[in-house]
Amino acid sequence: MKPLLEVRNITKRFGGLTAVDNMDMKIFPGEVVGLLGDNGAGKSTLIKVISGVYRANKGKIFFAGKETRIDNPMHALKIGIETIYQDLALAENLNVYSNIFLGREKLKRFLGLIKILDHDYMLAESRKVLDQLEIEVPSLKKQIRTLSGGQRQAVAISRSIYWDAKLLIMDEPTAALGVVEQKNVLNLIKTLSSQDIPVLIISHQLHDVFSVASRLVIMRRGKKIAERMTKETTTDEIVGLIVGSIPGDYHDVNTDTAKGSDVNRRHFASKSGKNHRPKQNQG
């Protein structure tokens, strides 16, 4: 099988700091890949390169078998790479189907000449995509502000799917959600992969990642240090790889992590998922 997305030798520097260093990764159709690493490991920078927010200094991106330059976020969206950020970018004052069609509204002719919004069409199409993804919301005519966090996320995901997303990237999808909602989102990720849409998920909630991802890519200090099939590993091993107490497979960068590793281990084990965005990525 051919990978849908392949990044090769991606390097991204911010001044003297190398946030992503010679990174390789493949994502295959229908696969859920967990991208793991401590704060500042370079995960967010990597996905921002893939989603067009940053341009890499070095390296190549192949999408659907072709080498692709992703110049900006709109370009990424156009070729089918959708990123679901925590803020979700929904208009809270608009209803569900209006958000799904925002910017790409379906119009119909009124009295033969004026183009007006075709609410019936947008409502019916939105219902279809929500049904396809087995998402339940109280009503598609309800404003987004009346929905729960998980429902909002489901709306954002359905919008991506309706507009033909080929690859979904999710940054901390469960961080702000309650227990039941987390479960719903994870189920949704499983549904997506069963419909052959691959998902790249970043999360500090190892438990969540283990329950949906089939493969895990672990980064440390901008480098990929290990890759594991979820079935063949344990959370202990992964935490060890993340914090550096277990040496990586590809790069031996484990030299001075001893002083921080205990703290880091506790950080991950307690699932205190609300991480701060790595400072270095903002720059």
Partner: peptide, 18 residues
């Protein structure tokens, strides 16, 4: 009724989303 109106509301709701 129109797309222009819808976008006016969307911008008021969230500039980022728009």
């Amino acid at each position: 009724k129109t797309r222009f109106g819808q976008h006016t509301y969307a911008i008021g709701g969230s500039v980022d989303a728009a």
